[in-house]
Amino acid sequence: MTIHRWTWQSKLTFALAAVVLLLLALVPGFASGGVIERLTVLFIYVILAAMWNALAGYGGLVSIGNQLFFGLGAYMTIRLADAGINPFAAMALGAGIVAGLSWLLSLFMLHLRAGEFAIGMWVLASIAHLCVNLDPLIQGETGTSLISLNAYAIDARRVLIFWAALIGMVGLLALLFAVLRTPSGLAMQAIRDNEEAADSVGVNPMRTKRLFFVLAGFGTAVAGALWLAQVSAFQPKTYFSVQWTAYMIFMVLVGGLGRFEGAILGALIFFAAETWFADTGVWYLVGLGAVAMLFSLFLPKGLWGWVETRTHISLMPLGYRVQFDTQSEQGR
């Protein structure tokens, strides 16, 4: 009997991922401005999906209020940039502040269960929205923009934001992957499967949930700051819209709740759906809601979960697999 983590598929995946990332990093060298901007959007979607998945898929914490972190990430960036900090430094620092804030929130939010937590987060997002509106710098719903980015020429700016988004995405995914493979990550997956049972074998659910809550707060704030850099305008209404969480839920449910690969797959599918169907306006949103609803009813583990149970392939291995020497005993 042998115990191992890596399979030839996962090794191949990592090699391929490294090649793809290298190619992506070189994209600004030959691609048009439009392509660079669309790819930046895709990276932001991957971050959003992966962070929502970290909370819901691994922590069992379904949040309808992740626009809280998204909006605050953008707002903090505006505030810090207004204080004279370089806009890119403001993005990182702002996300750090949001991470600190989410630690504070976790002290009481994590005591709520299931639906209570879900809507409680929504209420928090609404509070943050109202408070941001009170800030004279923002001018209420009129909003403002990240003026200090104008110091960069438009082409250079586009490429810088692209790289920032790429580094943000890779960094956050690597962080999540690393955390999920630590004892805390295993604990988180144990909590996802059965909280009482995990508690009884010595997992501290609160500590582990808090870790993921802060990680999700940080990552989603990074995504908000990147989005702000990309579109430059900040209107509280658009950033604190529940629509963002609807997108996250769609991506994760379709890709695979609680599957590391699932969030990435979901973001790709959402990106494709947006590219093709966003022109249809309201029907596009109806379609997103309907697909999310059908997946949660009939395929709650999403497309990747379905592939995984069929083929036993794990491209990004988080657990260990046991292989028996005799053929007949093989399998999980």
Partner: peptide
């Protein structure tokens, strides 16, 4: 499917109804 799925399902329903 657990206590989380009803939250997701009814949220999807709300999006569908609102936009319809």
């Amino acid at each position: 499917g657990g206590e989380l799925l009803p939250v997701l399902t009814t949220f999807g329903l709300a999006i569908v109804l609102d936009n319809l």
